[in-house]
């Protein structure tokens, strides 16, 4: 993948396991967020980007001509570092996606909002204030509302770009617990700068450096017996 003439991602090849959490780690500028955005073609929105190669989801190349990018992003949801609720009510935030996908019955929407909130472990905190503005919630709650919003369109894959980096340890723990719950029937790919978080939550881990994957292995192996000296030095905080 190139930004103009800058070769941002090189020779990337990895299989991401379904219903598992895969963490992407590496120093700033190493290409991990860029790689994450290739998985739902979010880089398409950036000018001057060239992409070579394939990204296959369920055996289908998402870069094939004619791919419906809107349905792709329905299938591959995304959570960003900073929670970004719409300036609407909690209910409207979560019902927004299903509504534009044609769900109009109030009862169906109410049911889906509840299911999504429960899956995002936010239901008990918002069930009595669904009509209040989502922007009035705490940072951790806003992030879980955003997760509920992503879940409401029933994605298969959830991309998370440093989803807890702006949260306190308690809110972070809630997000991490939620990820454990979700991976039972959702594939999660997370970018994190927090080594302990990568070690705690992920099943597999890919270490990016200068746009390449240096090492990709089971997380327990990477954090106890890394193969590459660069990986050892990065995960133990010697650079990055």
């Amino acid at each position: 993948m190139y930004y103009g003439s800058n070769h941002a991602l090189k020779n990337i090849s990895l299989d991401i396991d379904a219903d598992r959490i895969t963490a992407l780690i590496g120093p700033s500028g190493c290409g991990k967020s860029t790689f994450l955005r290739t998985l739902n073609r979010l880089n398409d929105t950036i000018d001057n980007v060239t992409i070579e190669g394939n990204v296959e989801i369920d055996g289908v190349n998402i870069y094939e001509k004619g791919t419906d990018v809107v349905s792709l992003r329905k299938k591959v949801g995304m959570i960003f570092q900073k929670s970004n609720p719409f300036p609407k009510s909690i209910f409207e935030n979560i019902a927004y996606g299903p509504k534009i996908n044609g769900m109009n019955k109030k009862k169906d929407l109410e049911e889906l909002v509840e299911i999504s909130c429960r899956r995002a472990a936010i239901w008990d905190e918002v069930k009595d204030r669904l009509n209040e503005s989502a922007t009035g919630l705490s940072g951790g709650q806003q992030q879980r509302v955003c997760i509920a919003r992503a879940l409401a369109v029933d994605p298969e894959i959830l991309l998370m770009d440093e989803p807890a980096s702006a949260l306190d340890p308690i809110a972070t723990a809630k997000i991490e617990e939620l990820m454990f719950e979700l991976k039972n029937n959702l594939t999660i790919v997370i970018v994190t700068h927090n080594m302990q978080q990568a070690a705690r939550v992920s099943d597999k881990c890919a270490f990016f450096f200068n746009g390449e994957i240096v090492e990709y292995s089971n997380t327990s192996k990477m954090f106890t017996r890394p193969e590459n000296e660069k990986t050892q030095n990065y995960i133990s905080g010697r650079f990055g």
């Binding site: 080594m195 302990q196 070690a199 990477m222 954090f223 106890t224 017996r225 890394p226 990986t231 050892q232 995960i235 133990s236 905080g237």
Partner: peptide, 10 residues
């Protein structure tokens, strides 16, 4: 204090 990993942990 440091949550060591890999060689440091060993």
């Amino acid at each position: 204090l440091t949550q060591p990993v890999a060689f440091d942990l060993r």
